[in-house]
């Protein structure tokens, strides 16, 4: 035998699903939505995504090389995921320099200051988005119309959520088909519910995430909307009882947020039970903001607020121990 024997404690097998594999799978799961979004809003989508991804990767590289001076980890694809998710939270018409600022906030402030992947308490892409929303409210809420046409005069450039919130239209303004296929104004990633669900199934199949957090969030939101509809006289107009829940689940960033942002590993709880608490919290806070808050959409705030609770959840919610009643 040529070499020295290798010795290590058991186990002697390791999974082939490395961190980079997982992150790459997330990017693949986001591709269908990217395609749909490009069809809906045109090539601007690709421009914004490309700038965001490139900026995130470059910022992470520069910070690791010249500021932290630790090992380079851009090959683990996590910066790419952050880049795509940040782009998915922006309108297609956003100027390029705002994307750069968003990417800087996401990577430099929300991720690398805490020690990089796995140590950030808040979802970097969402921190970037919220920062931009506060700093550049006009650019961040100027939504381009779908290129395919003008069946949306009723919305006149507002997202469906905003239009419904201001009472301009009812929750039945868009058909189920339009909601699923993304025929509406909105950010890059939130318009294509069906494509996002395809990504969800892919992530489940690849065992990147489990169903608990997304399903809890969406079910909580639907139930919340159901009871609100009930209170708003749903007894008289039974159609509202299903229209309002469906509208809230499919419109806005509910699916993007629950499938791709709330399930971010380092900012979500470590246990299934903790994940359920986390999901319910996000669902409730989102609906509170959507219905009574200042913003038409509350998903990003809800996720960030619940991100802040994760250390507490991890401390007190333990997994079910074997043999302990």
């Amino acid at each position: 035998m040529a070499n020295k024997l290798i010795v290590a404690p058991a186990p002697h097998v390791q999974t082939s699903q490395s961190t980079a594999h997982i992150m790459r799978d997330v990017v693949i799961a986001l591709l269908p939505a990217l395609v749909v979004s490009t069809i809906v809003f045109g090539v601007d989508v690709l421009r914004v995504t490309a700038i965001s991804v490139a900026a995130c990767v470059v910022f992470e590289f520069l910070i690791q090389k010249y500021v932290v001076r630790g090992p380079l980890t851009i090959s683990n694809w996590s910066a790419v995921v952050t880049g795509v998710l940040l782009a998915f939270n922006l309108p297609a018409s956003i100027p390029w320099w705002i994307v750069l600022i968003g990417a800087f906030v996401a990577i430099a402030i929300a991720k690398m200051t805490f020690g990089g992947l796995g140590k950030n308490p808040f979802n970097p892409a969402l921190v970037g988005r919220v920062f931009l929303l506060v700093a550049y409210p006009v650019q961040m809420t100027t939504w381009p119309m779908p290129v395919s046409g003008g069946a949306f005069d009723a919305l006149s450039g507002a997202t469906p959520l905003a239009a419904v919130k201001h009472g301009a239209v009812g929750p039945d303004v868009l058909g189920v088909q339009d909601l699923l296929l993304g025929n509406m104004p909105g950010s890059l990633g939130e318009v294509a519910a069906l494509a996002l669900l395809v990504g969800f199934v892919y992530l489940l199949w690849r065992r990147v995430i489990t169903w608990h957090i997304p399903v809890t969030i969406l079910v909580t939101m639907a139930l919340f909307a159901f009871f609100v509809a009930l209170g708003k006289g749903g007894m008289q107009t039974p159609a509202l009882l299903w229209q309002l829940p469906l509208f809230h689940v499919l419109a806005g960033g509910a699916i993007l947020g629950s499938v791709f942002m709330a399930t971010d590993y380092s900012t979500s709880p470590m246990t299934v039970r903790g994940g359920v608490i986390f999901g319910i919290g996000i669902g409730v806070i989102t609906m509170l903001i959507r219905l009574w808050g200042a913003y038409p959409e509350g998903m990003s705030f809800a996720i960030l607020l619940m991100n802040a609770c994760v250390p507490l959840i991890n401390k007190y919610v333990k997994p079910k121990r074997f043999g302990v009643k």
Binding site: K4, L5, V7, A8, P9
Partner: peptide, 22 residues
């Protein structure tokens, strides 16, 4: 001379609890 290569967690305590050493 080294007779084998330890590939586990780089800690004397871990190595000592497993075997004779490198």
């Amino acid at each position: 001379p080294r007779t084998n290569e330890f590939n586990g967690a780089k800690s004397c305590a871990v190595a000592a609890s497993l075997y004779v050493g490198e």
